[in-house]
Write a protein that binds this DNA or RNA. Sequence first.
DNA 1: CAGGATCCGTTTCGATACTG
DNA 2: CAGTATCGAAACGGATCCTG
Lengths: 140, 140
Amino acid sequence: MRKQNGKSERRSGCPLNASVEMLGDRWSLLIIRDMMLLGPRTYTEFLNSYERIATNVLADRLKQLEAYGILATERDAKDRRKQIYRLTAKGIDLAPVLTEMVLWAAAYEETENAALVQEMRKDKKAFLAGVRRRGAEKTH
Amino acid sequence: MRKQNGKSERRSGCPLNASVEMLGDRWSLLIIRDMMLLGPRTYTEFLNSYERIATNVLADRLKQLEAYGILATERDAKDRRKQIYRLTAKGIDLAPVLTEMVLWAAAYEETENAALVQEMRKDKKAFLAGVRRRGAEKTH
DNA sequence: CAGGATCCGTTTCGATACTG
DNA sequence: CAGTATCGAAACGGATCCTG
């Protein structure tokens, strides 16, 4: 488990000091993005999504995201061996953050999957609805 | 300097793969937040803002953010020893991302500086204008 | 004194081997 | 399949030193 690093910041009047622990992490963001765009995932699907994530790091981040209440786990009803990771309501509410990140990145950094970006830009609410719908999927 | 880690992700159809390098970093986010809320800053001001940032890490992040075009440096006209770090237009355009982060954090994690959060929630455009105004300040 | 660079002990990461 | 254990490499936090 990662260092929990309780009191890191001196500045007290500023928001975000606590949550930056979770949002300021490369892998956590990618995990959240994948669940938003693709719906509930399994451990192995995450593992195959990123070239350079180690199994222990993935396990650590999933555990941490669950502890934060951003995702929840359940067993696949059909295949009891499989475990499904799914965004909670709290996790789904991160969609606007990810949306703004993607729009910024699209404007300045990259143009990958321009169609999706276009959809997000044109109608943020429709995109958010899509995230909610995928979050509610039984399986994928 | 931090590892630049060229090709980290396998998934090609998803946006955000590149920019997560910059946005998925704890200190970068805090540096950007400080400049948005407080205007242009000096190295020493950043250093005093966070209890646990090391001088080499701060220097590294400032260098990296400058390389990304998110901030720019200039010398203080009055005190030539001082160097001022200021958000560029590209950096200012990150305001929506930070705004959504703060609103999410306020809803679920913390309630620090509720007045500011209230302002952001009520009128995002006014808050963005404030960021722009602070960004244009001559000194602070 | 402001803005770092350098060294050093500790923590985290990435890779891989292994296990319930 | 879903992780845990281990280990070398990289990054980090802290202190100190350097330079204008």
